[in-house]
Design a protein around this nucleic acid. Structure first.
Length: 110
DNA sequence: ATTCTGACGTGGG
DNA sequence: CCCCACGCCAGAA
C-alpha cells in the first residue's frame, strides 16, 4: 500500500456505499466511473478487501449481465441472493430479474 | 523473478 | 446464440 494506489480501493468503497437501497450496479460501471474502465477486475478485487469496510454492500455489485458471480465470496452461497431479495430484488438462479430496472449508474445518477 | 489466476468487459468467429 | 481470446492490474504460490 503505497499511498495513492489505495485511493482506488477507497473510491470503490465510496461508490459502493452510495448505492441506493434496492439498487444494483456492475463492476464495469464503477470502474468506468473511477476512470479504470479497462480494469473492471480491480473493482472486484477491491471488493475483496471490502470486508474491512462496514458499509460496503458488495452484494449490490454484480457483473454487467446482473449475474451474482461473486456470491461464492460471501459467508454462505445464498447469502448474497437473500440480501438482494431482502431489498426487493428478485433473483433467479444467481441472475437478477429486471436487472436494468434495478441498475444504478454511478456516473449517471451520482 | 516468473507464472497463474481472478468478484470483468469487449470483440471476433 | 455460443465459444474463444485478449486486455487490465494486483496478489498468491
Amino acid at each position: 500500500m503505497t499511498t495513492d494506489n489505495t485511493n482506488f480501493f477507497q473510491k470503490v468503497y465510496e461508490v459502493a456505499k452510495r448505492i441506493p437501497y434496492g439498487r444494483v450496479t456492475s463492476y464495469g460501471a464503477i470502474a468506468k466511473y473511477l476512470g479504470a474502465a479497462r480494469s473492471a477486475r480491480m473493482v472486484g478485487w477491491a471488493m475483496n478487501g471490502s470486508h474491512n469496510m462496514p458499509d460496503v454492500p458488495a452484494h449490490r455489485v454484480v457483473n454487467k449481465i446482473g449475474l451474482l458471480t461473486g456470491k461464492h465470496h460471501f459467508d454462505g452461497t445464498t447469502l448474497m441472493q437473500q440480501l438482494l431479495e431482502s431489498e426487493g430484488i428478485e433473483v433467479i438462479d444467481n441472475q437478477i430479474v429486471n436487472f436494468e430496472k434495478h441498475f444504478w449508474d454511478p456516473g449517471k445518477e451520482l
